[in-house]
Write a protein that binds this DNA or RNA. Sequence first.
RNA 1: GGCGGUGUAGCUCAGUCGGUUAGAGCAUGCGGCUCAUAUCCGCAGUGUCCGGGGUUCGAAUCCCUGCACCGCCA
Length: 512
Amino acid sequence: MSYYITTPIYYVNAEPHLGHAYTTVVADALARFHRLLGEETRFQTGTDEHGEKVMEAAEKAGLPVKEFVDRISAQFRRTWDEMDISYDRYIRTTSPEHVRVVQQVLQKVHDSGDIYYGEYGGLYCYGCETFYLERDLIDGKCPDHQVAPTYIKEENYFFRMSRYQDWLIDYIAAHPQWIRPERYRNEALAFLKEPLEDLCISRPRSRIEWGIPLPFDERYVTYVWFDALLNYLTGLDYPAGEFYPRFWPGVQHFIAKDILKPHGIYWPTMLKAAGVEPFRHLNVHGYWQMPQGKMSKSLGNVVEPGYLAQHYGIDQIRYFFLREMVYGLDAHFSEEALRTRINADLANDLGNLFARSLGMAFKYRKGVVPHPGVPEAADKDVAADAQAMAADFLRLFPELEFPKALARVWEFINHLNRYIVTCAPWELAKDPGKAQRLDTVLYHLLEGLRWLAALLRPVMPGSALKMSEQLGLGLSLWDLPLSQVLKWDRLLPGSLLKKGPPLFPRLEMEEK
RNA sequence: GGCGGUGUAGCUCAGUCGGUUAGAGCAUGCGGCUCAUAUCCGCAGUGUCCGGGGUUCGAAUCCCUGCACCGCCA
């Protein structure tokens, strides 16, 4: 089974914020997870660069459109690089490959009769890029922009989305997990209770130039969503490239709830019309609620991922994202909550466990992994719990149950901390007759840490690597599929540990 | 206006098919340890499970209703 993991391509009319970062980190963690299991994995992100709003944003910035999109797209890419995002491909909708794919699909759907030419007149808001009905207006103005829309009548091309309504309803009904979590599946079904209208997929060039020309009518460019969604096919070099048959339809799309409609309705019907199998899952997540309410520029509470990463550390942010938000639900964001997680979970529990374990190994055994003796009950408990933790983690992670998966890992961390107190190695060290017992305890501790490093790799890649280095793990204990790494007693007695700075420095809570 | 969700400890949340004294983490208080990043371990709590009514031997859980907040659609 192969995994094709995607984030949305982010719209370049605004700079990267917390929400973009969350989607991207989740997708990255899952991609790393599948790679670790030795599964064929491909992960992609990128930017969506056409449409009227982008033109406007460029104008506002006083830049030629191309220059503007280059700049913002690069900014997104830099942010992901700073956050250790392991994308295999970075898609831009202005790239020639993408333009080619969009035109091919349009032509195909046109040829098969699912695109027709028609006339549409209505009240159009340029800000929303949408036609409005009288009843939707507030005081005759667009509800979002407070601007009176203009009546325009124009001829356009329409995609016969309505033709696939029943098919889509049946497909959703037959595949309960297809759109997940369930609340969003229900929302998609709610859309479909009303008759589906055909989708207007063109914009006249007289009005907007910044888009992909329709292959069958040069007077028009493609509607930005029809263009953007196809990036998922471009990323596999559809239709002739080698990736397409390898990775389609094993697709895991990750999106935030605001773009459920395009992904849950437009996209599957587009695929159906183009003769392409549906994706495997659409994974929809919620919003980060800010302390002052919704995140918005006017409130000045937009959080930049780059700032967080620099201030608190990449892995700290990644951990927080996955631990604090139940996938699919909204969650609260605050720097205070972040600091609390960092100190309580990372510095105190995990970081300190790691430091005290290695500290004792150096103090009592000169940094050499000892040979374990015959295990006692407490030791066997540790080994058994490690196995149980791994089993739970491996089950929960692909179900997107990140908080549960991590909480389970932390149960094991607590177990190891308790194990230390119970066995009291500092007492054993005082009695030469208990040398072998001390060896056994230290070995079990270090071996437990090795399992932690292995499992935390998708979540905190940088820290996991530091752990593996300090544990003296060679490539044979690290760069292998998890199934081979996760075997108790694999840590090699006699191998050398390495000292290092604290994995997760404790933050002072007073400072702000 | 229609549909849906949420409401549980000071805070953030878990509570499967209805079944003993309703749970976790953080914060708080007390005790223990000294290997460790003043960390760790143990103990202690505290609750009108949003209000009201109903079904049931038994309701945080099911039904009705009211309130509050949120989302989607129109």
